[in-house]
Amino acid sequence: MKKKNRIIKPLETIEIVRAEKVTKKYGIGTLDAFAAVDNASLTVKRGEFLAVVGSSGSGKSTLMHMIGGVERPTQGKVYICGHDIYSMKDEQLSAYRCREIGMVYQFFNLIPVLNVEENIAFPLIAAGETVDFKKVREIMERLGIGNKGTYYPHQLSGGQQQRVAIARAVIASPSLILADEPTGNLDSGNSREVMDLLESLCKELGKALMVITHDEKIASRADRVIRIEDGRIVSETMKGETVMM
């Protein structure tokens, strides 16, 4: 008989994300051992826009992957909507991640053999849910790719591909959108447009947005900015505040 995993429902907490003293070490037991993220704690509230800023190799992507349920921390706990995600079984975590977290990557990560509509609907298909293509088209219209439904990723420009990735991230109505350098592969015009869309869409839908970036312009748009250096959180500033180093 097929064993079914119990579906974990999210709790109605104010904080969408709560990371408690998370540490990620690589190469444990070797001479090259190092901590990519060291004892980092942070929270993200519902509807908040948080930017994590740091130079290349500072550990910001590792932190995002740990929050996104992709990379298990060596120490510490990550709570998403009140549940410790790393105490879940792998299948439960995948299903939970699919429902509660939408991810946008720098290199888009679109499925090359699926067209735009199918790419956007993919998280629902993977979760075994019925796809409401009307909703898919609405989001596409909202993101300005309404006429690209039958196109394949290689037929789109970088900016259009990132719009598809954003639509895919929000289709399952997750509570949190994680974006790893979403404009890192785009020109300045497209970067601004993509960020405008991402921000306004999250505001409209009431989703929390966490953006990993090294671009100060993008960081300045966020409600709160966390700076990370050598795996440690070194400062936290609210919008309009000056950074005290």
Binding site: D90, E91, R97, L110, I111, V113, N119, F122
Partner: peptide, 15 residues
């Protein structure tokens, strides 16, 4: 790369 993209898009390991 293809299957990791599926995984990143929400598919589970068993799928």
């Amino acid at each position: 790369s293809f299957y990791a993209t599926l995984l990143a898009s929400g598919a589970t390991q068993s799928q």
